[in-house]
Amino acid sequence: MNGSVLIEPPVPCTDPWPRLWPFLPERVACLLKGWPRSLLGAVEEIRLRAGRPLTLTVGGQAVPAGPGGPAGDPAAVLQLDGSDLQACVELISGSSLYALEEELKRGFLTLPGGHRVGLTGQAVLNDGRVRSLKHLAGLNIRVAREARGAARPVVPHLYDREADRIRHTILVSPPGGGKTTVLRDLVRLISSGVPSLHLAGRAVGLADERSEVAGCYRGQPRLDVGPNTDVLDNCPKAEGLMMLLRSMGPRVLATDEIGQGSDVDALLEAQNAGVSLLATAHAGSVGELFRRPGLQRLLAAGAVERVVVLGRSPTPGTLVEVRGGWHLEPLEVKSRGQTPGGVGPGSG
């Protein structure tokens, strides 16, 4: 977050740590550098809270961090204090917290590399609405991982070769199920094309409200979302989808975590404009999905042709089930139970 604008190509490697070390306070970085690589590879979140122990989320479990690995003995856990938090905030803000007004209002920011940092502290109110945060006391760094090929088993179910179009699709999983990771790879594959499926690359518009899919830093995607993808970063989904539709002429529109009524309106509008839709939604199962009011409307309007259910086991992003047809009944999934492309943990 230094002054200069970093222009680098997206990094294809899946090891997120080299990009993370510069943003961690010294004590935390030193401790974690002593962890075995295999364990670091499974870390999904790093949680820093002032006055409390350093906690990592590994495989969905909260793990107190000690030297060399998870600490069994409470005395071995690294206790963080206010100065650690202060140092981390300085590092992630590039010593310019004042420049992150919008980010503080939303409660999160995105690091170069696509890692999202959630922030808590004391809210500063203005007319009853949150204007900013002060006294930051809790940070949650979500480790973003790229998993190239993660969406490869999904693509054949979505591509209608006869009509040469992508079917309107919702990716569904519980939190941490790999929705965002799979969506990112799906966007990349559709954008660049899959020759073996005779799927030609096409323009994709991505409304990335929380900067998690493309990991944009200063408007430029830092994760690989394909050569033919236009990203509207940081923009409210409903507005972003309409802007992309009007201005960029996409054949596919993608967005993350839909649910609100306004998102659904925008999706329905886009569907009527002849654009294919890709979206993700939090839901433990298809039954839960059907119970969410906003999504009910989308389903009732016939705007969903495929529902792809992803699961956490054995690894996040595992294809569990594909549903389609008039009543969204389960379709046969050949690759059932396989790990598509070896999705790493994290990026739910």
């Binding site: 230094n2 002054g3 010593s95 310019s96 420049a99």
Partner: peptide, 14 residues
């Protein structure tokens, strides 16, 4: 630089 341009500090200093 800080109040209107909201430039990050290194840029603001330069």
């Amino acid at each position: 630089e800080i109040s209107y341009a909201l430039s990050p500090l290194p840029e603001a200093m330069a």
